[in-house]
Amino acid sequence: MNKDFKQTSRSGSLPWLLQRISAVILFVLLLLHFITYHFLSKGRAVNYQEIVAKAGSWWFPLLQFAFLLTALYHGLNGVWSVLEDYTANKFWRLVWYGLLLTVGAVLLFVGTLTIIKLYTLPVA
């Protein structure tokens, strides 16, 4: 095992920067989420009808989809950076990377379906 610093050909600056940018975006989206879902109901519990009504608005799928993408990127990128630390072997790195991409793809698919489902729910 080479114990000196071995320079790679890859910088890590972009993932780092994107991680920070996605964190800021997540924060803003989370605020919007709270405002639209929870704080606009003026002190009483939000009911199903109100949610369904909101879910039908034009901005709902846009907001939720942005949320989904950013959270997936931020979460998976975070897990990847930790896995990279603990996996020196190139093969296993590829395996992990593939697994993370698969998980990401599946979650993206399921999430998108859910958003569409909510958007298209009939208002009772």
């Binding site: 610093f5 071995k6 320079q7 890590g12 600056s13 993932p15 780092w16 990279e84 630390d85």
Partner: peptide, 13 residues
């Protein structure tokens, strides 16, 4: 150029 690397500053979490 040296520290801007996966094994450089970017491994600090």
């Amino acid at each position: 150029e040296i520290v801007n690397d996966k094994n450089g500053v970017w491994r600090c979490h």
